[in-house]
């Protein structure tokens, strides 16, 4: 189980190839990568976080995923700082014996990272900068777990 909060870019292929180590009891790996999306006019995105709490909150979310599903390994990488459109913001990866656990745990991790990990996105466009508002749908998504 690993958590990395960093400003630097990462390569999902490299991370996916090594996060489960040399284990041979893994039959399924699922990964999700989130990118900076430009719906028109986005110059860049700035991501602020709460150093210390961020790592703890993600570790707690990961621990809960491990409690609920039979995971062999998991990885969460989340970037902060200034990111250009198209850049990778974050990734989650899960490894399990079978795909059902890997898929469900990856979705769970994503749903909780959206609204329970202390990150705040700010979008900078030609018109100025604005903090991204949390969506009710993201909060509602937690109720299914």
């Amino acid at each position: 189980m690993a958590v990395r909060v960093q400003a630097a870019p990462f390569d999902p292929g490299t991370e996916l190839a090594r996060f489960a180590g040399d284990r041979t009891d893994v039959g399924a790996q699922v990964s999700f990568t989130g990118l900076v999306r430009d719906d028109g006019g986005l110059r860049h995105m700035e991501i602020e976080h709460y150093p210390g709490m961020t790592e703890k909150a993600i570790a707690a979310i990961e621990a809960e995923a491990v409690r609920r599903w039979d995971l062999k390994a998991s990885l969460v990488i989340h970037r902060y700082g200034r990111l250009a459109p198209g850049e990778r913001i974050m990734m989650v990866a899960t490894a399990a014996g079978h795909r059902a656990d890997a898929f469900a745990a990856a979705e769970f991790l994503m749903d909780y990272l959206k609204s329970r990990a202390p990150f705040w996105k700010r979008e900078v466009t030609a018109d100025g900068a604005a903090w991204v508002a949390a969506k009710d749908a993201d909060e509602d998504a937690l109720s299914r777990w």
């Binding site: 703890k56 909150a57 989340h78 974050m90 609204s115 329970r116 202390p118 990150f119 949390a134």
Partner: peptide, 29 residues
């Protein structure tokens, strides 16, 4: 609000707390 880096409620007691943080709803992912 977070008390010592754990999410909390506004009616939570502050006794023994060293760090309080205020912020808008989180937008990670």
């Amino acid at each position: 609000v977070a008390l010592d880096q754990e999410l909390a409620e506004f009616d939570a007691p502050l006794a023994g707390v060293r760090e309080v943080a205020f912020f808008p709803p989180m937008t990670g992912g």
